[in-house]
Nucleic acid binder design. Structure first.
Lengths: 125, 125
DNA sequence: GTATCCTACAACCATATGGTTGTAGATCTC
DNA sequence: GAGATCTACAACCATATGGTTGTAGGATAC
């Protein structure tokens, strides 16, 4: 239900946009170099309008931009958007490390990797 | 449609699963520590069944696992899945760097077509 | 000018999604 | 045992999604 107006909403848009193989492929293409919409459309087994919709979804998520060039619109990937999502996943990982840290605080028992080592206890399996 | 049986399909599932603020929040919670489904359900303004569905979607995407513990099922986040997606974004960024590299190639050697060539222009990093 | 190509947008359809309620099975507590 | 709690699952509904076709407007080519 909507809820696409705050900070979170941007991630909603971006992740939803990328949760489709066609759109991911389009992003890859236009990250490599600009393509017109009809140019992109020829790459996929669907109508021009369908590809146009995919591009619109990517544009709404700010993953690509379009600019006029004669009678065609060139689509270009926005690497900054990709980086933003990458940062979000880094934060998720940080959350996980947080848990490990607190786990370590409580038990002081490194069952997993992080080798804070200390003595030599354990090794477990 | 469908197309969720190959390698790409996994990303479809994972990204779609994360394209929802409630599910992202659940992942954050269970990455930090295990929670039962009903425990999670109390955190959100929706029915138990709705949260249960969200967890099922996360489970289908292999972002979380569930295991029995008495009468409740404890949900735990799978950091490996998060890392996999992070890697995918790294690859997208690599695609972009590729483009920059080739742009540089063109500027450096305005010969003509692709450099299948030998010589030494490689690096590519 | 006319014809052609590229794009935008609307209408439509089938299905997926996110939510609800209700029912039923396990498991714990008493 | 009875009751409470946690879970699973089905049925249902409103809306969003991904696809289609068709129409119309700009820009290019002839």
């Amino acid at each position: 239900m909507a809820a696409a107006d705050n900070e979170h909403g941007q991630f909603d848009l971006v992740l939803h946009a990328l949760a489709d193989p066609t759109r991911r492929d389009i992003v890859r293409l236009v990250l490599r170099e600009e393509h017109s919409v009809s140019n992109l459309a020829r790459c996929y087994p669907m109508s021009f309008a369908a590809v146009q919709k995919h591009v619109a979804i990517l544009e709404r998520a700010a993953l690509v931009t379009k600019h006029k060039h004669g009678r065609e619109r060139l689509v270009r990937g926005r690497i900054e958007a990709v980086r933003e999502v990458a940062r979000m996943f880094d934060q998720l990982e940080a959350t996980w490390r947080d848990r490990l840290d607190r786990f370590g605080d409580v038990l002081a028992a490194p069952d997993t990797n992080i080798q804070k080592s200390t003595t030599k206890q354990g090794a477990k399996r």
